[in-house]
């Protein structure tokens, strides 16, 4: 039990003393998860809008598929991405294995269904009159998409926060694709896994608390953003 308290003390020490290993892992975590979020938002928002806005044959089945993808096991994503970006794989030439962009690719795949599903829900829950209003005021298709997403911005922000939480705390992809390389691809979560494997439970707790603190900081800045876009 006492390692929990030790971990708490150690977490503060790590942060206050600017421990370079910890900051390297924080940076790796923020880099890969932010890049993953950027990609999954760019690809996920239009898809989510399309899925939420239009009615078409098979929509229900497609929703079920997307909802199932919400439960994608991270290790499966890690293995699939590894298969593609391994030097033997079809995308091996790009040299993504054991790099942060490689992790970001896997995490973007993880985040994409979250963004799509929650955006679709947010767009679906918009008043039907919104579309009529936008179009009767002269919006073309692109403006319709942008304005609808903007109207649904709180739901979409929630989608972003949920997806961000999922990618920031996943271990499977970071470990498999990133390789937990010190100073390079060691993220907060792989560092926690490593320390725990080494039996350094207190350090694991400390890093876990640091990760929680990062999540807190991210959420505080997003809720600040939320107030700005009211």
């Amino acid at each position: 039990m006492e390692f929990l308290l030790d971990g708490f003390v150690q977490a503060i020490i790590l942060l206050v003393h600017l421990d370079p290993e910890t900051y390297s892992a924080i940076r790796a975590t923020l880099w890969s998860s932010s890049a993953a979020m950027a990609v999954s938002l760019v690809l996920g928002l239009p898809a989510g809008f399309w899925l939420g806005y239009h009615n078409f044959y098979g929509k229900h089945a497609l929703r079920t598929v997307v909802d199932t993808l919400l439960s994608l096991p991270t290790v499966l994503v890690g293995l699939i991405v590894y298969a593609f970006i391994s030097r033997q794989g079809p995308l091996g030439e790009m040299g993504l294995l054991f790099t942060l962009p490689g992790i970001a690719v896997g995490q973007a795949i993880l985040a994409w269904p979250v963004v799509v599903a929650l955006t679709a829900t947010a767009v679906e829950s918009m008043d039907r009159q919104l579309s009529i209003t936008l179009r009767s005021l002269g919006a073309d298709r692109r403006q319709l998409l942008l304005s609808t997403l903007w109207e649904a911005r709180f739901g979409i922000l929630a989608a972003g926060v949920t997806a961000y939480g999922r990618v920031m705390t996943e271990v499977g992809i970071s470990m498999m694709v990133g390789g937990n390389i010190k100073w390079a691809t060691r993220t907060m979560t792989t560092a926690i896994a490593l320390e725990t494997n080494k039996g350094m439970f207190a350090t694991g707790v400390a890093l876990g608390l640091v990760l929680l603190a990062i999540a807190f900081a991210v959420n505080v800045s997003l809720s600040f953003l939320r107030r700005q876009v009211r």
Partner: peptide, 25 residues
Amino acid sequence: MTPLFRKPVIFAFCACLILFSSGIA
């Protein structure tokens, strides 16, 4: 137009993302 980039805070947020992306060795 949708005022996505009108607010300075959003702009700063995006700038942060770009800053992180300069991190490849």
